[in-house]
Amino acid sequence: MSQIRQYAIDTFNAEADAVRRLSSLLTDDFDGAVSAILACTGKVVVTGMGKSGLIGKKIAATLASTGTPAFFLHPGEAYHGDLGMISRNDVVLAMANSGQTDEILKLIPFLQNNGNVVIAMTGNPDSTLAKNSHYHLNINVEREACPMNLAPTSSTTTMLVMGDALAIALIRERNFQPEDYAVFHPGGSLGRRLLTRVRDVMRRDIPRLSPDMTLGDVIIAISDARLGIAALVEDGKLCGVITDGDVRRAMARYKENFFNIRAREIMSREPKTIAPEARITAAEEMMRLNKIHSIVVADDEGQVIGVVEFFNVSVLG
């Protein structure tokens, strides 16, 4: 193994060890911090300077996208008017590995006078920031991954992981679901798939045929629709389906008698159906489990409304 690759492995091990150590540093303050955020009627204001600030921006974004309103406040800008962004019912998550960062400490008197709950995230429980907070989250590391023990590496990793732990605890306590997540991510593929309904992508021009039609007529109808499937309807309700695969198998089986066979003799009598209001993810799962490429869309009374195809589902991903 090259020495260069060993540097990478040493970094992985150092930061992994720092993360594993976090569980031993957890106290009741973590429970208190989560409870305070759950009880918050305002927003979570995340603030940090330098590398801590960069991690803070990610934590704020994670919280905001998982059901906890949050935003990042740059501490340097706070004393130039941005303190007005903090309301009395906000919870403030202040981050500084040393717990002694001047720009952060300058915020403390304002936050105390404003009545804000302060959650500190530092690597020093005895620091000024930790002692002037309601809850302290200890992200102490024994040593940075940096060989000089100077560049924030392990400490920023533990800071990020502690922020993720907060977010995950809040997700679980709020019973935050994939559908809720999609609401905040409507522009992404996940949002599109979780929010899209079957009615939004189904085709309405599925052939509706009588089960007494000959297979010759069925071939023409399926070919004209270019769907590869036809719904067989009797007394206004779905009674079966025929796919182009069914037709090919019937041709091989019946040979010269093929054109005399009626649709009901080869149709699938208990076809899978889905409601138009169902989520497209439900259609996708049904297709996957049943190894099919199309599902007839029908209402509660069994009337055919359309068909949803695998292609329409897959393009959303």
Rank of each mutant, 00 (worst) to 15 (best):
R5I: 12
N13Y: 05
D17S: 15
R21C: 07
S24E: 15
L26A: 09
D29K: 07
S35G: 09
T41Q: 13
G42F: 08
V46T: 03
T47W: 04
G50T: 09
S52G: 13
L54P: 04
G56S: 03
K58E: 02
I59W: 02
L63W: 07
A64Y: 11
G67H: 14
F71R: 05
F72S: 03
L73P: 02
H80R: 12
G81D: 05
M85I: 10
M85D: 07
N89G: 03
N89C: 08
D90E: 11
M95P: 00
A96G: 12
N97Q: 14
E103S: 07
L105R: 11
L105G: 04
K106F: 12
I108H: 02
Q112W: 07
N113C: 14
N113M: 13
G115L: 14
V117W: 03
P125N: 11
S127H: 00
L129E: 13
A130L: 08
N132M: 14
N138I: 13
E142Y: 07
P147F: 02
T156N: 07
L160P: 00
V161Y: 05
L166H: 08
I168M: 15
I168K: 02
E173W: 09
R174F: 12
F176V: 12
P186G: 06
S189V: 09
R192P: 00
R192C: 01
L194E: 06
L195P: 00
T196V: 15
D200N: 15
M202I: 11
R203L: 13
D205I: 02
I206Y: 02
P207C: 09
D212M: 03
D212P: 01
M213V: 12
T214E: 00
G216E: 05
V218H: 01
I219N: 10
A230M: 06
A231M: 10
E234H: 07
E234I: 06
K237Q: 07
C239S: 07
G240I: 05
I242T: 11
D244F: 09
V247Y: 04
R253D: 13
K255P: 01
F258G: 00
F258H: 01
F259N: 06
I261R: 06
R264K: 14
I266Y: 01
M267K: 04
R269I: 15
K272L: 14
R279V: 11
R279H: 15
E285M: 03
L289K: 13
N290E: 12
K291M: 05
I292M: 08
I295C: 04
A298Y: 09
A298N: 10
E301R: 13
V304K: 02
V304S: 05
V304C: 03
G306D: 04
E309I: 06
N312Y: 07
V313I: 15
S314P: 12
